[in-house]
Nucleic acid binder design. Structure first.
Lengths: 199, 199, 199, 199
DNA sequence: AATGAATGAGGATTCATTCAT
DNA sequence: CATGAATGAATCCTCATTCAT
């Protein structure tokens, strides 16, 4: 009833929230998650220290919020992938494509995650869609091996290598700001992985 | 004061240094580099806090010392590799072999590095021999491509993938304590990389 | 602006004031005065934090207001007592009776005061009618001693014990929710104090 | 082996510990337990803030230490009491006496406790010997009633009044610094309670 | 060299209070 | 008046580091 909140205030609240998130992303990618302090984040916004706590309880929540804010974009990206693969090339392609779309559109977030796996692990931040679907991959690989579509590789090792390959290329891609190079990077990954699976 | 006691004192000095290094490695692998405090390290030795500073200025120095201490062993290991490779298989094999020897003999150190790339980077810890010789690799690859021994791959991407592959397998190897599995892991790496380079 | 709306607004104003006071009493008795924060009180009302300051400057003012609001009731209660006592039994009875009426009708307020004497003291909250009339008591006792109605007791000690006795029984009465037990509690007090004054 | 700690250092450590405890007692009695902050205590000593934590984790620990330090004295005091009482006068006397000895020798501590019952309760500080042994008292009273030594009083009310009486007199005694008045205070208590129990 | 108590800078967090809307 | 976001002072606490012994 009394909730007549003028647009101005709400807008300002949203602006500050975004300020904090963006400041967080900036500091996280500069200093890493575990070296970043709440003070670093808030100092970088010009807001008062207490203001941080009107929005977030911990620095980790800032990260989660950053992901949540990106979730819609991510959803749309991942929709494009996940098509039904009819052979091994397509299977790999359908994993690689959406991942690189994500990396391409949210490079800072990807960078934070890829360089802070330890912290991400430690704080058990749930980032289902940002990571590659390793478990699904393993099952599909088992099936493919059974059906003789691909040779009999060590699944644990291959899975580890599969994601580290994609990630390594993605990091290289982001680091070098070869922004025009997206197709190139994807093609490299697919080609590399497909060949490594051939007999 | 008395020269005769020196030997004993130096021996004790060396013992404490090693105590601190070993404590450091233990704590670093448990808590990660950035979460580890000097207090953690020294508490774990039973020595007094001030004693730490007789040996090291920072926790990072402990890590560097740990590597330096391992350097001699590492040197001997790496010596075995670096032989002259006469084809691509050998080239890769001669990279993979010594790396896995190192991982196999100094698994805790390797584990710390592989799970704390951020911190290692940030503190610009110089660990020439622990990392794969990426720059050398790049030059050799360029030559090999020119001589048509291997197809014309993107050297930046391939180098990135090359080391991440070896590292991913090594991590898997260490994590699973498949200690009997060394040859297996090496073979997987070599096979995977060789195939990915074939036309 | 429009005088016609005033009634409604004043009513609402009064409603919020009472809301805050009741919330205060609730929180004070749960957490104690010094552990209670303005935020606790206002959160418990559903009102906005700033609204608190339209009514009170501090949490202590809430307490004072609670007492003031109870003052009228208290006044009526105390009127019943204060009759002219013609002997020591009556004198004590006329102190004990209204006090227990108060305790019985405003148990939460009494509970807050009895369990927060420190804070009540510190903030020098003036609560004339809630406390027993110690000073009056002292004068009356002096007179009674002079007139040999009661033996020559130490007036300071007796006064201290007089009020602490009544309070202790009252606390016991409130704590145990022996709500049917009012007469019993009063009788115990009177009997106990009268006998202790006899020769 | 290396524990050759010079007397000077140990002495200083003990001095600081005592400084903190004495500062704590001073502030606690001025501001009450819950209003006292660790900073208040440490500021009052001239030591650095961090130093507090070399000795105590919380302000409550300071209080406990103060009691522990007094424990030896207390023990000796309480030894004197607890004799076998052969009648009601003695029974009361044997409760009152050691309590007043304690109050007389540790008046500040007693003051803190008597004025901060709430906090003492809330933090469940264990102070077995400082409080009167109410539960024991109740059992003894039941027995005495059964044996017709004392009339049939309400045990809950009497117990409450028993301890509040002693405490009220003790507070009065401490407040007025009637230090010469110890015997007087004790006699008042015993006389008051004995008479109130007579038929 | 070893010790470990003292230090104080710095980060986390809470809370009373203000003020634009 | 009601609102509730912003503020920043004040607290708690940890830690690297120093230094007298």
């Amino acid at each position: 009833m009394n909730k007549i909140t003028t647009g101005k205030r709400e807008a300002n609240k949203e602006i500050n929230r975004i300020k904090i998130i963006e400041s967080g992303i900036e500091i996280f990618s500069k200093k890493g998650i575990s070296e970043t302090t709440v003070r670093d984040i808030i100092r970088n916004t010009g807001l008062a220290s207490g203001t941080f706590y009107n929005y977030f309880k911990t620095k980790e929540e800032v990260l989660i919020a950053a992901i949540d804010d990106a979730a819609y974009d991510l959803g749309k990206i991942l929709e494009k992938g996940r098509k039904k693969a009819s052979n091994i090339e397509e299977f790999i392609e359908f994993q690689v494509d959406p991942f690189f779309e994500m990396v391409s559109e949210l490079p800072e977030l990807f960078f934070i995650f890829s360089t802070n796996l330890e912290a991400v692990d430690r704080f058990t931040i749930q980032t289902p869609q940002m990571t590659l679907a390793i478990e699904d991959l393993k099952k599909d690989l088992e099936l493919a091996i059974k059906n003789k579509i691909i040779p009999d590789v060590d699944i644990d090792y291959f899975s580890a290598v599969f994601s580290s390959t994609i990630e390594a290329v993605a990091i290289e891609y982001v680091k070098n700001n070869k922004k025009t190079d997206l197709e190139n990077a994807k093609a490299f990954c697919v080609n590399f992985l497909v060949k490594s699976l051939r007999n």
